[in-house]
Structure formats: structure tokens, C-alpha cells
Design a binder for these strands. Structure first.
Length: 382
DNA sequence: ATGTAC
């Protein structure tokens, strides 16, 4: 009997959820993991403690398969989180917030920040470069708070009290275009030409990394500091070709011997961790706190629970720059799980070791032009 | 998360 004459094996992939019983994981998200596990060619699904439901596929999962499924990565190919040291000594949140540039618009052609992008962007895609986007994306000025592994922060050149820029953004319209081109032809099905998809995917991954550098350079420049190289930059939406398989990461960062900034919320700390995840976790760690409720629920419940002023000035004393009230509610800290529980789950499952915590001073989401000009914009859009 | 249509 030869294997090639056997009927396709109807086996289902294994699913492992790396969360403790105390961690609330929405059942819809686990259901999505099992739906993914049933896909043709899927071998193993590793769900991180920040798992939550996504559009068609779960967010916070690493999925290993012999077949490449673009929809498992989603449209924001190349999205990730980077940490840039910034040579500022002191920072008063109010003054910093007022100095942030408009990150909804690309820098002018003659802006000196383009020096960080010599040769132009991957795929020649200029549109949107240097813009942060929406959703959970942000640029944050944060302070290294508690050092938990001094030998490790020493290696990174960081000490408690240092200021850093944390940048969470991706490939903007470029990744969206790549997924749309696939979806229009093949829906949620596999990529018939994996090499072709991967070539465009790799450009979006490079574009996302460049976008984070341009964003950091813009903010550094606006705050009177020099642009720096990131000490940490991990992409959590991508496909990695590994051991002859396609490892899809969707809201799951590479955790095999790499440092990752696991983002908290706009009002709680984040944690820099040293990842050491193995095959059972598909070599991955969590990428953030993970949503606890949908955007719609966060908006509904948030309006009853918080004022806009409370969301703009957070419990840790930081400011949130966000002229979009709906987004402010959707992204409220209470819409997310407790980052400490997510980190505790990573530790309990031996996926990562905490290195340091960061505390936000100013988190920039989208321009806040003040009430008068907000109205102007709203009218202008009609 | 996105650009775009309503």
C-alpha cells in the first residue's frame, strides 16, 4: 500500500489554549480555533492567553499548516509592535501631547524624517507611509517602570526611568490590498500560488516595519529628539515558512528566543518579555492584553461607565490623544483583559519571562484638533 | 484594520 493512494486523511489539527482557568477566554474564539483546526492541511493551532474572536479567524493564535491560508493572517499583514529608545530626560504629558504631529497624514515630501527610508518604501507603495491607522494602533511615549530582569535590560541598554516610544502599526492600505486581491479570487481558500502570495506578503511585512520607524522618527523629531533604531520590533500578523510548513500568526508574536513588547492598554502598563516558546505554542507568545468585549459592547457599556475626560486622563496619569470619541470608548482599558493575567499565563506555561514593564505617559491614537476643528472635520466629511 | 460606499 502506498500513501499516495490513500484517501485524504480526515484528521483534525490539535488545538492548545495557553491560558489558565482564571483567564476568561470567549467561547466564540475557541470555536474559531476549532474551525481553523478543521481546515485542510492544518496540523496545530496554538492559542495565546489574549485570544479573542476575529473576523472569520481568531486573534491571538499561531496556526501551523501544510497549506497557506491568507485569511488567517488577515489584511494587516506586517502589523507589529516596536520599541524605540528616545533621548528625553523629562516629559510632562500635557506638553508632549500638544507636540505630537498629525499621524493621520503622511509627512510632507521635504520632511527630514524621510532620511530613515532611503530608497523609498517596499513595493513602491508611498500612500499612507508614516501614518498610524486606527483600531488598536497607537504611538506611545512610555517610561521603563519596573525592571524585572536587569541583566536583560542591560543588554538592551535600558534602565528604569528611561523613556521609549512604543509603536503599534502595520502595513495600512498595502496589506489590505494584498488580502483583497486574494479574497476576490479565492475567498477564504488557500493561496494557489504560495510563492506569489509570500512575495507580496514579505513586502508588506517590510513596509510595516518601515512604517513603525517612520512613525517613531516623526514623533522623535517633533519632541526634539534624534531618531533611533528599535531595540524590539516583532510582527504579530504574518506567515513564516518553517520546517516545511506555513506558520500563520494572527495577533501572536514570534516567541522563540526573541524579545516582545506585549501591549497593555491605553491606561495600564505594557510588558517587555523574553520569549522562549516551543513547538507546542507554535513558537509564539501573546501580542497584547486581548479584547474582553467587542467594539460594539465596549461602546455601549463604556458610555454608561466612563466620561470622555476619564478616558483621556487615565488611572496611571497618562494622556490619550484621540479626537474620535467612538474609538476612545472602543479602546477603553476596561474593554481589554488584565495584562498582568496575560503575562502570568505566559509565565505559567513557560512561554516567556518578563523583562520590564512600561507605563504610558502619552498615547497617541488619532489627532485631537479640539472641539471647534473636530466639528469642522465632521462637516467636511459629509 | 481597512478604504470606500452610503
Amino acid at each position: 500500500m502506498s500513501a499516495q493512494h490513500s484517501p485524504p486523511s480526515p484528521t483534525t489539527a490539535t488545538v492548545t489554549v495557553f491560558a489558565s482557568p482564571e483567564s476568561w477566554i470567549e467561547s466564540d474564539a475557541v470555536r474559531q480555533c476549532h474551525q481553523v483546526a478543521a481546515l485542510d492541511g492544518m496540523r496545530h493551532v496554538a492559542a495565546m492567553p489574549d485570544l479573542h474572536p476575529g473576523k472569520g479567524a481568531p486573534i491571538g493564535a499561531a496556526m501551523a499548516s501544510t497549506v497557506l491560508y491568507p485569511h488567517l493572517v488577515g489584511s494587516d499583514i506586517g502589523c507589529g509592535i516596536a520599541v524605540f529608545p528616545i533621548g528625553l530626560k523629562r516629559a510632562v504629558p500635557e506638553r508632549i501631547a500638544a507636540r505630537f504631529p498629525d499621524l493621520d497624514r503622511s509627512p510632507d515630501p521635504d520632511d527630514p524624517v524621510w532620511a530613515v527610508a532611503p530608497g523609498g518604501p517596499p513595493a513602491g507603495h508611498v500612500e499612507g507611509l508614516g501614518t498610524v491607522g486606527r483600531g488598536n494602533h497607537f504611538v506611545e511615549l512610555a517610561r521603563i517602570d519596573t525592571v524585572l530582569a536587569a541583566d536583560h535590560t542591560d543588554r538592551l541598554g535600558l534602565v528604569a526611568g528611561d523613556l521609549v516610544l512604543v509603536v503599534h502599526s502595520g502595513s495600512r492600505g498595502l496589506g489590505e490590498r494584498i488580502l483583497r486581491a486574494h479574497t476576490e479570487a479565492h475567498g477564504a481558500g488557500p493561496a494557489p500560488d504560495p510563492a506569489g502570495y509570500l512575495a507580496r506578503h514579505d513586502e508588506a511585512v517590510r513596509w510595516g516595519a518601515l512604517n513603525r520607524r517612520v512613525l517613531a522618527a516623526r514623533v522623535a523629531h517633533a519632541l526634539g529628539a534624534e531618531p533611533t533604531e528599535p531595540v524590539v520590533d516583532q510582527c504579530h500578523n504574518l506567515v513564516e515558512v518553517r520546517d516545511g510548513e506555513y506558520l500563520h500568526r494572527k495577533g501572536a508574536a514570534p516567541g522563540d528566543g526573541r524579545d516582545v513588547l506585549v501591549a497593555g492598554t491605553r491606561g495600564t502598563p505594557s510588558y517587555l518579555v523574553a520569549g522562549h516558546a516551543g513547538p507546542a505554542a507554535n513558537h509564539s507568545v501573546a501580542h497584547g492584553a486581548g479584547r474582553k468585549m467587542s467594539r460594539a459592547d465596549a461602546l455601549r457599556r463604556g458610555r454608561a461607565k466612563h466620561t470622555v475626560a476619564q478616558l483621556r486622563r487615565t488611572p496611571v496619569g497618562s494622556l490619550v490623544v484621540c479626537g474620535d470619541r467612538q474609538l476612545l470608548f472602543e479602546e477603553a482599558p476596561t474593554a481589554y483583559k488584565r495584562i498582568e493575567q496575560v503575562i502570568a499565563d505566559l509565565v505559567a506555561h513557560d512561554l516567556a519571562t518578563p523583562v520590564a514593564s512600561t507605563v504610558p505617559l502619552v498615547t497617541y491614537k488619532t489627532p485631537d484638533l479640539g472641539p471647534d476643528r473636530r466639528d469642522e472635520r465632521r462637516r467636511g466629511r459629509r
